[in-house]
C-alpha cells in the first residue's frame, strides 16, 4: 500500500478504507497480508467488501502466527451487516446483492481498540493512539 506522506509527525490514527474494487483482483493471501501489514502499523483497516469465510479463517490463522508478547496481541474485527446466510438487510442489498462477502469489515490492532461495540445499526470503536 502506498504510504501516506508526513504521517510521522502527526499524532493520530490512520484509517485505511479499502474499496471492493481494489480487493477484487487480489489473491486471498494478498488481502490478508495487506490487512495485517496495516494493523501492524497501528492502522484501522476498513474493507468495503469483507472477506469470504475461507479468508476469515486464514486471517485468524495468520494473525495467530504473528502474535508476539509485548509487540502484537492480535486483532479486533467486526463486520456489518452480520455475515450469515439469511443476510438480506437493506444495507446488504444496497452494498451489492446478497453476496455474503458484501459486508463492511473493520479490523484493528487488539491492544489499541478498547471497545469495538456493534449492534444492528452501529459499529463504535474507541481507538487509542499508542
Amino acid at each position: 500500500m502506498p504510504e501516506a506522506t508526513g504521517t510521522d509527525d502527526i499524532d493520530g490514527v490512520q484509517i485505511d478504507l479499502i474499496s471492493g474494487q481494489r480487493m477484487e483482483g487480489m489473491a486471498s493471501m494478498e488481502k490478508i497480508r495487506m490487512i495485517l501489514d496495516g494493523v501492524h502499523d497501528g492502522n484501522i483497516v476498513i474493507l468495503e467488501e469483507g472477506l469470504t469465510p475461507d479468508e476469515e479463517s486464514k486471517l485468524i490463522e495468520v494473525t495467530m502466527a504473528e502474535i508476539s508478547p509485548d509487540e502484537f496481541n492480535g486483532i479486533e474485527i467486526e463486520t456489518y451487516p452480520r455475515s450469515g446466510p439469511s443476510d438480506s438487510s437493506l444495507l446488504g442489498r444496497i452494498m451489492g446483492s446478497d453476496d455474503s462477502t458484501a459486508k463492511l469489515t473493520v479490523i484493528g490492532p487488539a491492544n489499541q481498540i478498547e471497545t469495538l461495540h456493534k449492534d444492528e445499526t452501529l459499529i463504535s470503536a474507541l481507538v487509542s493512539r499508542n
Partner: peptide, 28 residues
C-alpha cells in the same frame, strides 16, 4: 482473534503466561 499474555499474569508468573499465550496462538 487475540491473545494477551497479561491476562494470565494474575494466575501465573510471566514466563508461564508468555508460554501459555504462545501455545494458545499455535493451538488456535
Amino acid at each position: 482473534t487475540k491473545v494477551d499474555y497479561e491476562e494470565f499474569t494474575d494466575e501465573m508468573d510471566k514466563d508461564d503466561a508468555v508460554r501459555r499465550s504462545r501455545e494458545a496462538t499455535e493451538g488456535v
